[in-house]
Computed example of a mutant assay.
Amino acid sequence: MHGQISNDTPVGVPADLMWDVYRSFELGRLVDKLAADVVGRVEFLEGDGGVGSIVKFTFAAEPGSPGSGYMKEIFTKIDDENRVKETEVIEGGYKALGFEVVRIRLEILEKDSESCIVRSCIEYEGDDKLADVVSHVSVKPLEIMAEIVGKHLIQNKSTL
C-alpha cells in the first residue's frame, strides 16, 4: 500500500522569503521559538541544514500524535530552483506505526510578488495491514507550521 496526502496553505509573503526559511535549519528554529507548544520541539542532530542533515522532532503533547511521540528525519533533497525540500523519516513518527517509507515534501509556490502557497505533502508506503492507520496520517502540523511562520514573517517584514 502506498499513498499521499497534501495541503496548500496560502501565505502573505513572497515565495523567496518563505523559501529562505524553509530551505534550512531556520524553519526548525522558528518552529521551536514560535510553535513548540502547538507543533513540537526541534533538535538539530547532524549537518549544516543541507542534504544529509538530521533533525529530531518531538511532538507537542497532544492526543493522537503519530507513533512514538517523536521522529527523526533526514534531509534528502533541497532544490533551490524549484523551492522544494524533501525529508525522509528514519525513526519514530509514522515509521513507528509500521510504515516502511515516509517522505515529507515541502514546496513553496509563487502566487504573486507578495504571496505564496506552501504545499505540504506526506507520502507513505507500507503493508496493506496498515489500512486502518492511514486515517491518522495528517499534514495538519505542517499546515499550522506554514501559517505560524508566515504570520511571523509578515509581522517582521520591516526588519528582514
Rank of each mutant, 00 (worst) to 15 (best):
M1C: 10
H2N: 10
I5S: 08
S6Y: 08
N7C: 11
D8K: 02
P10S: 10
G12K: 07
G12E: 15
V13I: 15
W19S: 03
D20S: 14
Y22N: 09
E26I: 00
E26T: 04
E26R: 15
L27P: 03
R29H: 07
R29G: 14
R29K: 10
V31K: 09
K33R: 14
K33I: 15
A35E: 12
A36L: 08
D37G: 13
D37C: 03
V38K: 15
R41M: 13
V42Q: 01
F44P: 10
F44A: 02
F44D: 00
L45G: 09
L45Q: 06
G47R: 09
D48K: 12
G49T: 11
G49H: 12
V51C: 07
V55E: 14
K56L: 13
K56P: 05
F57E: 09
T58G: 01
F59V: 08
F59R: 01
F59T: 02
P63T: 07
P63C: 04
G64K: 08
P66T: 02
P66E: 09
S68K: 06
S68W: 01
K72H: 04
K72A: 05
K72D: 08
E73M: 15
E73P: 06
I78S: 07
D80H: 13
D80Y: 10
D80N: 12
R83F: 01
R83T: 01
R83A: 05
R83L: 07
V84R: 03
E91L: 09
E91A: 12
G93Y: 14
G93S: 11
K95E: 06
K95M: 02
A96T: 07
A96D: 04
G98S: 12
G98D: 08
F99N: 01
F99D: 05
F99H: 05
F99P: 11
E100Q: 09
E100R: 11
V101W: 02
V102R: 08
R105F: 01
R105L: 00
L106Q: 06
L106F: 01
E107P: 04
E107H: 06
L109D: 00
K111W: 04
K111P: 05
D112S: 00
E114N: 10
V118M: 00
V118F: 05
R119Q: 04
S120I: 01
E123C: 09
Y124P: 11
Y124C: 02
E125Q: 14
D127S: 15
L130M: 12
A131F: 15
A131S: 15
D132L: 04
V133D: 11
V133I: 15
S138F: 14
S138H: 05
K140M: 12
K140H: 12
I144P: 13
M145A: 10
A146M: 04
I148R: 15
H152C: 11
I154C: 13
Q155K: 14
L160N: 14
